[in-house]
Write a protein that binds this DNA or RNA. Sequence first.
DNA 1: CTGCGTGCAAAGTATTTGCAAACCG
DNA 2: CGGTTTGCAAATACTTTGCACGCAG
Lengths: 143, 143
Amino acid sequence: MEKNTAYHTLLKNLGLKVTPKRLALLSVLGEEHRYLSPEEVWKKLRRSFKNLGLPTVYRNMEELERHGVISKVLHSNRQLYYYFCPKTGHHHHFVCLECRIVEDISVCAVREMEKEIKRRVKGTVTSHILQVNGLCSGCAGKQ
Amino acid sequence: MEKNTAYHTLLKNLGLKVTPKRLALLSVLGEEHRYLSPEEVWKKLRRSFKNLGLPTVYRNMEELERHGVISKVLHSNRQLYYYFCPKTGHHHHFVCLECRIVEDISVCAVREMEKEIKRRVKGTVTSHILQVNGLCSGCAGKQ
DNA sequence: CTGCGTGCAAAGTATTTGCAAACCG
DNA sequence: CGGTTTGCAAATACTTTGCACGCAG
């Protein structure tokens, strides 16, 4: 299994122990080109691992997100979703609210992005979430 | 109270009944240049209204958000926050994760935004959430 | 009056935590 | 072996719902 070797290496590089469940979790996320909720991942994994706890899935997904391996998809319904994006470098995502597929978008300006999405994905942009987080001058000083 | 008249009109235009609590809620949000959680708003309002239920605050904030009067601030901790933004037209926000102040950003490209933030707010951008939502070609057809 | 708005109590539900046992390296 | 990882059960905590009463129009 080439893929598994890759995931194996990935985990090692992060300093995480390589367990069958972690490999399977990465595999599920890696094969899916859509974002998934922890519960969905759990249901898929339980086919192979009868005794898999939902908390384990939550913990691992959170951990992997912290390491930047997978990314969180924000939903206004305030549920967690994750997506495995192998692409490196600065880029953003176009997500379909219906089928949950994710497409990489290389350009960053939203106007430009809309154009690219119309052209490449032939999709419709219904909304976008753009929020810049940081610290204002006052708070940056206090750190 | 000029402000109250404005909120009064605002509610009327939305076809919502004008109640003292709604006016006060708008007032709290309108005076605060920061995003607030429903509970925080509730605590502030309870100074004036002893019998104010938290659900009422949730309901009203959700309603106002639906009407586009206030906007939801996304947090990865999956809690709800709202911010009253009087500014119209296409623009985005810079939010300080520390003091929660919100600044309007007129330009849309993220690179440009970072520049503007550094210049105007003298703040530091630690991260940004940019997610374009919509429907891909396949799903758009199925609608 | 008439229905929207609200308080209160109660339910929901996704997510998190504690702890002992299992497992990787 | 020694510290992670995991299962299970239970707890959290935010948010939502149901229903009866009250108030705006």
